[in-house]
């Protein structure tokens, strides 16, 4: 018999629920991270944002900001707030397995 731990690799999150190691992210994990943040189930629009965030972060070295997401992902600001209510910048990063957007302190 297989248990969850056999199929889902063990992942470490920080106290705010962000993945510690972004390489451990999988699409299945995105569903779990989303559910944990009170979002979901994930729709095609969600995936459009998540895919953009993952690709952009790999290219740029930092997670994209909200402005960048709204300009380049093809999902506008209003929709982003509907998809990821309250804090789309932070929540999109979380579900995409990326670190939280931060200030300097």
């Amino acid at each position: 018999m297989t248990t969850m731990t056999d199929t889902v690799p063990e992942v470490e999150t920080n106290e705010e629920g962000f993945l510690v190691n972004s390489d451990q992210w999988t699409p299945e994990l995105a569903e779990a991270l989303a559910a944990d943040a009170g979002i979901g189930p994930l729709t095609e629009k969600h995936w459009q944002v998540i895919t953009f965030c993952r690709e952009d972060a790999a290219q740029q070295g930092t997670p994209p900001g909200l402005r960048r997401i709204s300009k380049l992902s093809g999902v506008n600001m209003k929709e982003l707030y509907q998809l990821f209510p309250k804090g789309p910048g932070k929540l999109a990063a979380k579900v995409s397995g990326l670190p939280k957007p931060q200030g300097c302190i």
Binding site: L66, G87, G89, K90, K100, P101, Q102, G103, C104, I105
Partner: peptide, 17 residues
């Protein structure tokens, strides 16, 4: 009013400040 999720966003700063 800040777009970030706190006035201090780094754990130690937020604890201390």
């Amino acid at each position: 009013a800040t777009p970030l999720d706190g006035a201090f966003t780094k754990p130690v700063c937020s604890d201390v400040l």
